[in-house]
Nucleic acid binder design. Structure first.
Length: 186
DNA sequence: GGAGTATGAAGAT
DNA sequence: TCTTCCTACTCCA
């Protein structure tokens, strides 16, 4: 699933389902996950999201003034996605789980989870976007264009078949195999 | 039941 | 440039 548009859609989805919700407790990591534990044990926090190319940033914001925000950078690999379900319907392959507080407006406890069947995806505790990845074509259109126009003279990068150039994430952050195929076909 | 396929990308050669 | 990580699904004998 996940190339730029799907990452953006996932980010909008997270913001939609988490709007007005309070989350609680330390996020739960599955036993087989390779990405780090999240030491953010907060009684009441909110979750918001933003995206840039193939990366999605979750922001955990504690309601108290004592705790700091925590930023988590996600890459989705080949099969990553976010889901929001009841605790009872937690999907298989939910490798990082954020639980809503039980006493919020909805009666049952819900879970925002990062689901990734193939486990090629990852998360990192950082607020920096990937250093080797270029601007987002939607959210940073001018920077996206400038980045390409100012580097077009670099023959080792751009003097190649366009089907190879389009996969260079330093300039086309968010383009993957299916998008380059669609773009070149059209 | 086995072979082949899948939207990523780090690490080895 | 090749290999590896991993699961789910389709197709075929």
């Amino acid at each position: 699933m996940p190339e730029g548009p799907e990452i953006k859609t996932n980010s909008l989805f997270v913001n939609s389902v988490c709007n007005g919700k309070i989350f609680t407790g330390k996020p739960i990591r599955s036993a087989v996950a390779k990405s780090p534990e999240i030491d953010f044990d907060c009684n009441k926090y909110t979750i918001s999201s933003k995206s840039r190319g193939k990366e999605l940033m979750l922001v955990l914001q504690c309601e108290c003034t004592v705790c700091d925000k925590m930023h988590l950078l996600f890459r989705f690999g080949m099969s990553g996605k976010f889901m929001f379900t009841s605790k009872e319907q937690l999907p298989k392959h939910a490798h990082l789980q954020f639980y809503t507080a039980a006493n919020t407006s909805s009666a049952e406890q819900c879970v925002l989870s990062f689901v990734d069947a193939r486990r090629f995806g990852s998360w990192h505790i950082t607020q920096e976007w990937g250093q080797e990845r270029g601007p987002d074509v939607v959210y940073e259109y001018d920077a996206f264009c400038d980045n390409i126009l100012h580097n077009l003279h670099q023959e080792t990068i751009f003097n190649k078949p366009i089907c190879e150039v389009l996969l260079n994430q330093k300039y086309f952050n968010g383009i993957g195999n299916y998008l380059r195929a669609e773009i070149l076909f059209r």
